[in-house]
Design a protein around this nucleic acid. Structure first.
Length: 512
DNA sequence: TTCCGACAGTGGGGTCGCAAT
DNA sequence: ATTGCGACCCCACTATCGGAA
């Protein structure tokens, strides 16, 4: 199959709004692709590269090269060239990658170049990624979409399922069962604004502490332990403590879901930055482990004694977890009978925060484990802080925000009457707000370099955020975590905005 | 040879709009 | 009405490469 066909379908998919039409377009293309091309075509149209990391970004891509006049590239050729990219390493590799990419781009037409660029930079923007590709795959093969989705969750990979399905037909889906040793996409949580709201929605529930660490899925089969992240990366080698803990448990074949986090000598959780830095260390794990030891803390069991627990109610899965994992290695929790019992949930949240944790996750007791989804039965509740900050500048948006000023630079007042930038945000704005702020900020503009528009610091905006992080990037030494716009405060003048000093005083735990 | 800056990739994430249910 | 998905981009961290010292 020619690459130009993929580029064409991707453009069509991007141009249509209806999901059903996107699905139909993808299904048609999957049918056209022969058995040899399908393993490449499906990931490409789902916006991902089968090879994973290639070491190609805007720098390696370099300057645009003149496009070819005629489409001649086949998807298999492209796949082979990109495969080469993953192979090169060591001195001179960056230049070599640039050369390969340049050659590939030179052989591509303008439309193909656009498609490849999106693929390589992870910005396909066709409004159809994995989930829509799954639907298309189901349609192309006559399988039930729900069965395909489940197989993808259990296999942890769309590609594997696609190959089996196209080779053997819908019967192949049977093969994809929960297997100890093969990672499964984890269940995710939605947000709720208060425990009262969460308990109201879920009724009888468990309220669990939410630890601010890294999500882990631990598989043990006999003496073999594997640890995976949320995106199913294998990080076993970086977490010897977790491997040891799993081997010490009185079970031979299990899959556990939990969090890995670092506690200080006093037993308080270290900052997310410290835990994440430790988990990210690969070169000298022994030293990293000595400096920042981590502990696994589990909250769910997907399999015990090789038995698949996914479809059991959470209450039963947790009972299995409790049998296998001793208390300190499980998250703390309390059971709440329903809305009338909300005060208990609120006390538990207050206690959890006092112990230095992020918040709580409220979980319905009846719900199965929804692998790979944001199940409505897990609701996280975290305290939200707000500040009135001043817009210092804004960046021009992309995609559906093209032509709108989108990403705001936020400043707090300093002692000398100026403003210190604390970070940026593009979140929380409605289309109406985007339109309004674009007009207002243009009035205040003092400079536009085509990317960033600097403005007179006069517009006050209310910002919600989850806390402070240490920063080497910003002058105050801190930045806001997960900042988002709540509303504009036209009733406030910049002199009334919050100060850096007050912010630091409000977050002594940031330790600056 | 060693150091340091820039780049790539990965972790954590919230909210909106739209299509589908 | 509600749900699911994709788009919108953030910041911090580590590893690696490439060029400067």
């Amino acid at each position: 199959m020619l690459l130009t066909r993929l580029a064409e379908v991707s453009r069509e998919v991007a141009a249509t709004a209806a999901r059903s039409r996107k699905t139909a377009l993808l299904a048609q293309l999957f049918r056209e692709a022969g058995a040899g091309d399908v393993p490449i075509v499906i990931p490409y149209l789902a916006g991902r590269l089968p090879q994973g990391r290639l070491g190609v970004g805007w720098k390696v891509l370099g300057r645009p090269v003149p496009p070819a006049a005629e489409p001649t590239l086949t998807v298999r050729e492209v796949d082979a060239r990109l495969g080469e990219l993953g192979e090169v390493a060591g001195p001179g590799s960056q230049a070599e990658r640039s050369r390969i990419v340049g050659e590939l781009m030179g052989a591509a037409t303008e439309a193909e170049q656009r498609f490849l660029l999106g693929l390589l930079t992870g910005e396909v923007r066709q409004g159809a990624l994995d989930a829509v590709a799954v639907e298309g795959l189901a349609q192309a093969t006559g399988a039930e979409p729900a069965d395909v989705r489940r197989a993808v969750m259990l296999a942890g990979s769309l590609q594997t399922v696609a190959e089996a399905l196209l080779g053997e037909g819908p019967a192949a889906l049977e093969r994809f069962r929960l297997t100890v040793g093969r990672p499964v996409l984890p269940m995710l949580a939605h947000s709720a604004s208060s425990v009262a709201e969460a308990v109201e929605k879920l009724g009888a529930c468990a309220v669990e502490e939410k630890l601010d660490g890294i999500r882990i899925q631990v598989h043990r089969e006999g003496g073999r332990v594997r640890i995976h992240t949320r995106t199913l990366d294998d990080i076993t080698g970086r977490l010897p403590e977790v491997t040891a803990a799993a081997l010490a448990l009185p079970g031979e074949r299990f899959i556990l879901d939990g969090e890995v986090i670092s506690f200080d000598a006093a037993g308080r959780p270290r900052s997310f930055q410290e835990t994440a830095g430790r988990v990210g260390s690969r070169t000298d794990v022994a030293r990293a482990a000595a400096e920042v030891p981590v502990s696994p803390v589990f909250f769910d069991a997907l399999a015990v004694d090789g038995r698949d627990l996914l479809d059991l109610p959470f209450a039963e899965r947790h009972a299995e977890l409790s049998r296998l994992v001793p208390e300190p290695m499980r998250v703390r929790r309390t059971l709440v009978s329903g809305p009338e019992d909300t005060p208990r949930a609120e006390r538990f949240l207050a206690d959890t925060l006092a112990r230095g944790h992020e918040g709580v996750v409220v979980k319905g007791l009846d719900a199965p484990y929804s692998a790979g989804r944001r199940g409505a039965s897990w609701l996280k509740v975290k305290p939200v802080h707000t500040l009135d900050l001043v817009v210092l500048a804004a960046e021009w948006g992309h995609g559906r925000r093209t032509g709108r000023l989108s990403n705001l630079h936020l400043g707090a007042r300093t002692a000398d009457g100026g403003f210190a930038m604390l970070g940026k945000t593009f979140k929380g704005m409605t289309d109406a707000m985007l339109a309004w702020q674009t007009g207002r900020l243009k009035e205040l503009a003092v400079e536009d370099d085509g990317r960033v528009v600097r403005v007179r610091p006069e517009l006050v905006v209310e910002i919600a955020y989850d806390g402070l992080q240490r920063s080497t990037r910003y002058p105050a030494g801190v930045t806001l975590r997960f900042a988002r716009v709540v509303r504009y405060r036209e009733d406030k003048r910049p002199e009334e905005a919050d100060t850096v000093q007050a912010l630091l005083a409000a977050h002594p735990e940031a330790g600056t």
